[in-house]
Amino acid sequence: MEFFVVQLLNSLSYGLLLFMLSSGLTLIFSMMGVLNFAHASFYMLGAYFAYQISRYVGFWPALAIAPLLVGALGAMTERFGLRTVHKYGHVAELLFTFGLFYLIEEVVHLVWGRAPVDYRIPQALDFAAFTIFSTSYPAYRVFMMGVSVAMLLGLFLLLTRTRIGTIIQASLTHPHMVEALGHDVPRIFMLVFGGGAALAGVAGVIGGNAFVTEPGMASAVGSIVFVVVVFGGMGSLAGAFVASLFFGAIQTYTVAMDYSLLDLAARLGMGIAADSPVRGLLSVSVAQTAPVLPYLLMVLMLIVRPTGLMGTRET
């Protein structure tokens, strides 16, 4: 029970973090019709920028400045990169974001090296928020959830309650019509790309110190976010939300579970002979399957429902 509750909180905070990435990726995908391979690179940059900035002025200013920098980089990526490449079609755009991913990774290697950097959670938040049964729960995790929920609530209100939000919504599906009504759609594209990058940057700032800030973080998180948007249905924010929480839970629970099918068999009273050929397979613990499970689920989803959980368009 204790295990269950603690892991529930962990999976919620991780799932919300994933949604900060997958929501931006989904919006950008709906708009451009192209998956942005470099999206998680903005997450990584958020973490590194926050690390660097917090060394000079502390965590709190970094929490605001790093995402703004990342957002500006994202907006420039759209304005001076993708917009030019767009003429040559989707494949060119895809290759562009692919190249950008490696470019950012190399730049991070050059500037900060290959080893993890010492980006820590701020002292002000380094205490136990409360105790569940006998486990004390870290305040920083609670803070992460708070920031995620606030950002996502802000995003939701922006999209549904403001004029620019309705223009963005309309531009996602009918950009030509929106432009014919006199709205500067190219600028909207730039803002959405920049906003999505900034959101990923926020996730990097609050996730980088909770987990690890190292050059491999973009590809690690990027592949999970990719699984999330495909599983949830490309272009569906609701799908991305459900899938983010789902994979947040899957990843959190599975890595912590040390059971195997062999244990299950034993509990059911089925003895498996020590020299049985299936014994090796059955003794694989749930935790050991954790890395492949998301991809397995994604493949299964694509077989059962090619559009994903709530997607409408084929990928």
Partner: peptide, 24 residues
């Protein structure tokens, strides 16, 4: 000029495929 600039000059357009924004 870009389409949105032309529209802002006072040219309106109603397309043949009724491009309403269905979810709004």
């Amino acid at each position: 000029l870009k389409t949105f600039q032309i529209a802002r000059k006072g040219v309106g357009y109603v397309p043949e495929n009724r491009d309403i924004f269905p979810t709004l």
